[in-house]
Amino acid sequence: MAHNINYNSSTGKYSFFSVKQNAWHGLGQIVQQYPTSQEAIRHAGLDYDVAKSELYTKGSGIIQSADGIEVCSTELIVPDYYANIRTDNNAVLGVVGKDYQIVQNREAFSFFDAIIGGSDGILYETAGALGQGERIFITAKLPDYIRVGKGDDVTEKYIFLTTSHDGSGSITAAFTPIRIVCQNTLNASLRSMSNVVRIRHTSGAKQRLDDAHKVMGLADKLSLQLEGIFNEWAKVKVTDQQVKKMIQLALCPNAETLALIKKGAEEQVSTVFKNTVEDAFAYAMVSDTQQMETTKGTLFGAYNAVTGYYQNVRKYKDQEAKLQSIVMGGTAQAKSQKAFELCTAFQTQGAEILKLN
């Protein structure tokens, strides 16, 4: 099952919900109105608890009695390790240590509710569970927008959260601006701060989870900075050849390819890389979203050519792979960060930066 969305056999439903738009692979529940956190938990099939249970293993011993020697088995407790069990169906989600603290699904949603005091300002767009329910994810829309130009080109502000019940990683909350016009995930990484907050599943996890204003503050600072940066980029003119060069540098897969580009020996790079660059450049030249006043022939448009390629052109194995690539620190996010750095350097140093990188 490539989508890996949890199927709850007791309810006959997939553990996923989305507002208005179809869910991944047509699965899950589609709702027409933005739900409350309690409703979202039910829609997404996340209304289950997780409990830590002691682990046991079998041992053997020899007993000598009047009837002779007898081999017997006994249960032995495994010290300092526990199984995380889903209480509604007894599915074992993973093995964790004694210091691991469970963050229940409803507590993950309360993280978002706490951001703006449980008001109506936050809008839950998607949520779901993967595997047997060992990983959950939530996407919530925040109030207000990032506006570029005269206001026709706007970007919505989202926070994405994922957490696991199998001991495989931390609670992760990421600020993600998504461009309304073409749904480009921008995920710009500024030099001054990270756009991701990670919280470990340790004894202080709940306390830090409750400290939700940290993430909201991060989103506010990032969005204000991005709005200023993008508006400046929308004023900087670039040629088509400069756009193509930036795409080459941003998507460059390794040092060998970069060396060939620097030497002007593009004919020697791999066919795969050539095709990738051509696809991204074609998107930059003909996509409707690249013909706006803020994007056509501008530095902002050059940046969107890279992010738009990964969101709208590149093929992925499935939606989970796309999510990993774009939001959770995968290839698309790394290349978008490189594009962001190139555009920042171009703004201050001009076209010379395209010869030196």
Rank of each mutant, 00 (worst) to 15 (best):
I5S: 08
Y7M: 02
H25D: 13
G26F: 02
L27I: 08
G28P: 00
G28R: 01
Q29R: 14
Q33D: 03
S37A: 07
Q38D: 15
E39Q: 13
D47F: 08
E54M: 12
Y56C: 08
G59M: 02
D67G: 15
E70N: 14
C72M: 11
C72T: 15
E75S: 15
V78G: 07
D88F: 13
L93W: 08
G94T: 05
I102V: 12
R106G: 05
F109L: 06
D113E: 00
Y124Q: 09
Y145R: 05
G151T: 04
T163E: 01
H165W: 09
A173W: 08
T176P: 01
R179L: 07
Q183V: 03
N195M: 06
V197Y: 01
V197E: 05
H201K: 02
S203T: 08
R208P: 03
L209R: 04
D210C: 00
K214Y: 14
V215S: 00
M216P: 00
L222T: 12
L224V: 13
Q225L: 13
I229K: 15
A234P: 10
M246Y: 10
I247W: 07
A250Q: 01
N254P: 02
E256T: 12
A259V: 02
G264P: 12
E267F: 15
V269C: 04
K274P: 05
V277T: 02
E278R: 06
Y283K: 01
Q291N: 00
F300D: 10
G301A: 01
N304Q: 13
G308N: 02
Y310M: 07
Q311E: 11
R314H: 11
Y316K: 01
D318E: 09
A321T: 09
Q333Y: 13
S336K: 09
K338M: 14
E341I: 14
L342Q: 10
C343P: 07
F346D: 01
Q347R: 04
T348A: 12
I353H: 08
